[in-house]
Amino acid sequence: MHLAYPAVLAALLFCTGLYGVLARRNAILVLMSVELMLNAVNLNLVAFDVWLRDALHAGQALTLFTIAIAAAEIGIGLAIVLMVYRNRGTSDVDRLRDTAERHEPGPDTPDGRPAPNHQSEVTA
């Protein structure tokens, strides 16, 4: 089998997941897209392991480890999402802006306003 087939499929799946992570609003849909990206990486690992005929089969072992870590990640991620939903009543990632830099919308925000905040954060 030509090696380009699994490599190209993995690249396209990874970019599909990348689009999902950037474009989705619900946190659980973002987690689904992360799963797609992880699966693309797994496909690459398996394909290159079969190609290189590694004696230790490092690619397949790493794939199993990645699957287990992805399962742990999805459990922790869903626990965090459920806690955020319980506290905030929403699971939309673009409404969780507490740690974003403040720039209030409107014409009355001068350009110099974020600078003192930033400086006080630096000096603190």
């Binding site: 970019c15 990348l18 689009y19 950037l22 474009a23 609003r25 849909l29 939309d92 990632v93």
Partner: peptide, 18 residues
């Protein structure tokens, strides 16, 4: 409202990366 407002930016980034 399943997709956020920056989906066109996301589409561009994904296409360039792909």
């Amino acid at each position: 409202d399943a997709d956020s407002n920056n989906r066109w930016v996301a589409l561009g980034v994904a296409l360039v990366a792909a």
